[in-house]
Amino acid sequence: MSDTTEAPPTRDRPLSWQSLGRTIAGGYVPLILATLVVFVPLLWMMLSSLKAPGEIVTTNLTLLPKDPTLQNYADAASTVPFARFFLNSVIVTVVGSTIKCILAVLTAYALVFVRFPFKRAIFLLILVALMVPPQVSVLPNYVLIAGMGGLNTYWGIILPGLGTAFGTFLLRQHFLTLPPAIMESAEIDGAGHWRKLWKIVVPVSVPSIATVALVTIVSEWNEYIWPLIVTDHPDMMTLPVGLTQLVNSDGSTQNWGMLMAGAVIVLLPILVIFAALQRYIVSGLTQGAVTG
């Protein structure tokens, strides 16, 4: 006994101030609490979307739906063109993110690997754009796009958001870390910029490009203020805008079952993507903090 108490004095010390009970109180309880605070509202949304109207419009709450039904989803789809909203969101997200990623890769490559006299000024221009909130440019862009006939069109929704400062910045930071040796060997082979970009830089930068792509997809999918302003025809609305219609059309008493079904449709795809690829998304979104 005396041997064991004497032998590990260093191990004894942390145990003395962080006993098991304190570990649970100070460690697991806050952790579980934080997890539940995030998790429970989302779980409540899912469960509610599967409940029959009688189980929602009641002051006697039950946790689980008595017999799960997709009625709310069907109701939502018959009140507003929900499938169309979903399709519009998918089109806007896929087209917008693809173009943005290509633009970001090209610009970042140019900024890092191509000689040009005003590179620093152009980089600064992009960096400052990162800090201009999109909301303050909404009115002038609306006037411009409306004047070009872009209201209620896909290109009108997509075009003003295509210039990408975030993706360019993130990829530039990554390209700067690539060893110069791999580019030099290609130069000796006489490869042009186009080949160096697609044969060398892009293949070794897949994780970074994936990060930019995921962050872009998430923000395109969630984008609200611009599509809200630029569309007023239901056939052209994206999901977040269409959900707004669902709230407005009901007047004072909300059809919560239908609204929760709508919320599931807009939140679930991103939740699934996040669950599968959270490492990339978290690192992409916190990049400024870690590097800057």
């Binding site: 998430v218 999918w221 969630n222 609200y224 999901l239 977040p240 959900l243 707004t244 709230v247 609204l259 929760m260 709508g262 919320a263 807009v266 939140l267 991103i270 939740l271 996040f274 998304i281 979104l285």
Partner: peptide, 9 residues
Amino acid sequence: VLSGVGVGL
């Protein structure tokens, strides 16, 4: 990373 509209609802 979630839509503010969905979260708000």
